[in-house]
């Protein structure tokens, strides 16, 4: 199949959309409501392109390319249409950039800057929308910042399959609301899908701008799936967990534990020294003392009651190597098969 995009002759496979072909060829078409893992709905209209012979511009994200199409992605007319779309989105947008968590990595900001939307010819009198409780306390919904792209709703439906969210109301009253809050598993997929600052996380009290934080790629230690994580680190403290769409087998998807369970890392309550119970109190001690105490007690119990009187319970939070060594220790040294780990519980 032969098509032409911006004067470039392209041979493409059948069944691909205009946007997919343009992306492969390195031709930039702006999008807002589009996400690779979701079905394209062409709702935001940012990706409009002109096709020769078509009366009206079409949305690139959900229009399949047809043999012989001649497409223009960046004409004056198209740029003006995109500008107008951005103006509509900004018409009632609060002046939140300086206090918004998303400032600096906000798709709306980027598009407004890219398209130089610097004047607002339209006005509207609409009352500010009220804050309401979201389906999980880990996330806050800012209705006035919302651009109604429905990425959160579609992610919940298509990726997670929980169907918690939907748009409630219409026109200027429209807002995203958890219509089935009981089904929410607090995975935060909606949070990661939001292109603007309409959904923000409330777990870490510390916030940092994108250019202040360091993103450290790592693997989640919560369970055996081993999702790829990016720890957002500010001043050597984890303040947020994100994940790269292109990394690992989780492809940008995380669960509640992986996304929100990071506060323990910097908790002052973590044990850093071994404790031994003396009388009714746990007393800090050295590793040497603790290990020899455990070794002598285990030997004593094994000699007195036999190997099967001992069981080992490992932590799923340890590395595979650690857990392998632990079961080896229980089986070979202690001599019992009574070994398990907490993820099975």
């Amino acid at each position: 199949m032969q098509i032409v995009i911006d004067g470039k002759n392209i041979t493409a496979d059948h069944g691909l959309t205009i946007l997919e072909i343009a992306k492969k060829e390195g031709i930039h078409i702006p999008t807002l409501c589009f996400m690779e893992k979701l079905l394209p709905i062409g709702s935001c209209r940012m990706c409009v392109v002109e096709v020769e012979g078509y009366e009206n511009p079409v949305t690139a994200c959900n229009t399949p390319a047809v043999d012989g199409m001649v497409i223009r992605t960046n004409t004056e007319k198209i740029r003006n249409m995109r500008k107008d779309i951005l103006r509509f989105l900004l018409i009632n947008h609060p002046l939140d950039c300086p206090i918004c968590d998303k400032g600096g990595e906000c798709l709306l900001q980027d598009l407004v800057y890219e398209y130089n939307v610097d004047v607002q010819p339209y006005t509207i009198k609409a009352p500010l929308k009220e804050y309401k409780e979201y389906s999980t306390p880990a996330i806050k919904y800012h209705p006035n910042r919302c651009v109604m792209c429905s990425r959160c709703i579609r992610t919940c439906r298509e990726v997670v399959g929980r169907n918690v969210l939907d748009i409630v109301g219409n026109g200027f009253d429209a807002r995203v609301e958890p219509v089935n809050p009981d089904r929410c598993i607090a995975c935060g997929e909606c949070l990661s899908a939001c292109p603007v600052g309409a959904l923000t996380e409330t777990v870490s009290p510390t916030k940092g701008r994108i250019w202040q934080i360091k993103r450290v790629p790592t693997v989640c230690a919560y369970c055996g799936v081993g999702c790829s994580l990016e720890l957002n680190v500010l001043d050597n403290k984890i303040i947020k967990v994100t994940t790269d769409v292109n990394a690992g087998m989780n492809k940008g998807v995380l669960c509640a534990k992986g996304r929100f369970g990071y506060e323990f890392v910097n908790s002052p309550e973590r044990l850093t020294k071994p404790l031994i119970r003396k009388g009714n109190e746990l007393v800090e001690t050295t590793w040497d003392e603790a290990l020899s105490f455990v070794a002598s007690k285990l030997t004593e119990i094994k000699n007195k009651y036999g190997s099967d009187s001992i069981a080992g319970l490992a932590s799923a939070r340890c590395t595979n190597e650690d857990n392998y060594l632990f079961q080896k220790f229980i089986r070979a040294v202690i001599g019992t098969n009574n070994v398990d780990h907490c993820a099975r519980l």
């Binding site: 002046l95 600096g104 900001q109 610097d118 607002q120 701008r209």
Partner: peptide, 13 residues
Amino acid sequence: NIEALIHQFKIGC
């Protein structure tokens, strides 16, 4: 004006 605010933010940061 949000348009001006966004430009200020983007240019400044």
